[in-house]
Design a protein around this nucleic acid. Structure first.
Lengths: 224, 224
DNA sequence: ATTTAGATGTCGCCT
DNA sequence: AGGCGACGTCTAAAT
């Protein structure tokens, strides 16, 4: 990883052409050849960049100024003309162990599939990702009395999630073999608006304690 | 802009939770408070980040290690525990003049709408973004003989663009008021595969000289 | 301010 | 490898 702060001008030609006038910016040159041009604002997206795989060629322009030409696929090129270097350092970062994502809807769904009774007394799983014509229902269950229960799982319960579950219920209740099907809207946090809408639709809300569920999961699987 | 290279551990909690184990990474702390955590690979997307508006609070953890807690909207938090700082520098970048994009499909379409004859002798524009049930046709024209011509504009002509035009032509030719409609696939550069497919479908290809078109545009509008 | 469509999207899963 | 969908999507234009 090489970090450079420099007054520079950048031109990109590839899918489109783009130009950055001369100004002071941060250049990040990664080990795989990729280059990022960042300013002191905006979001995580650079002003300009070249994605790997690509190669950097350092040269000297007509006027004697240093320039980098980064070549990617499809003859995409990023040309950086450097007017003045204010900082230049190299760092050995090694390989990153990588990001661990957790608490994503999928994981929450898996945990609830293992512990459906945490949603309602006596609930048992029929199947996860129960297929319907308009998409899969997160969890299809049966309650203690044997009636069908459709569960929609979200990390944050908002109105559109309730709408989604409503559509599923409307469809599922047309099937005489399943009807009547009731719904449970399960989330770590449920917004007041969503709660009101769910009540209006006759849908139950279940606030899920993610850490507690994960604890149950650990104790079952690891036994120590 | 502050650039830090450090052995650090990062935890994010917001829409999801994510964890980065202790490793050496680059931290970019921008003037607006936003923070980017980059490794020495991947694309321009950081491993983890906090978008503005947000605030950074520098503190000391229980074990005496420096930590940054970045707080954003909706109680999103990014917590960075620093084990060892390998580099730390600050830079005044000033305000960036910003990116100038050019040659995006829309711009090319505008230029061709002004100069349809550059695609084929005697071609005149009927309308731009001609609506159909499956989406708008970039340019609908008429040739010297009065027959309809549908034009699909791309910066780079690839197979999917030919497929797109094929779908439009298939639909447009069902309309007895328009049929027969022929097609022109216009791009600054047309890939051999796309050219072959277009020929097979009876679609003409037109390679557009963007700079020449822009020149015509300038001379018309600026007159100097 | 809110919504909508495009993006040099990127990323991951699946066939 | 190629297609499809989700994303902490981001971004800018139009309403």
């Amino acid at each position: 990883m090489r970090l450079v702060v420099a007054r520079c001008q950048v031109d990109y030609a590839g899918r489109l052409t783009a130009h950055l006038p001369m100004a002071t910016r941060v250049l990040m040159l990664k080990a795989d050849g990729s280059v990022l041009v960042h300013s002191d604002g905006g979001s995580y997206k650079p002003l300009n960049w070249m994605s790997p795989p690509c190669t950097v060629r350092e040269g000297v322009g007509e006027d004697g100024r240093v320039e980098w030409v980064v070549t990617g696929k499809n003859d995409d090129t990023l040309r950086i003309v450097v007017d003045e270097v204010l900082h230049d350092s190299r760092h050995d970062l090694g390989v990153d162990p990588g990001l661990v994502k957790d608490g994503v809807e999928k994981h929450l769904q898996e945990l609830l599939a293992e512990h459906p009774a945490s949603l309602a007394e006596g609930l048992t799983l029929v199947r996860r990702e129960y297929p319907t014509a308009i998409g899969p229902v997160d969890l299809m269950c049966r309650d203690a009395a044997g009636a069908s229960v459709a569960v929609e799982v979200k990390r944050r319960g908002e109105i559109d999630g309730v709408e989604q579950l409503t559509r599923y219920l409307e469809l599922l209740n047309r099937d005489p073999l399943l009807a009547p099907v009731r719904g449970i809207f399960a989330a770590q946090e449920i917004r007041p608006q969503a709660r009101v809408l769910a009540a209006d639709r006759g849908i139950a809300c279940a606030v899920v304690d993610y850490d507690a569920l994960r604890g149950m999961d650990d104790s079952e699987h690891r036994l120590f």
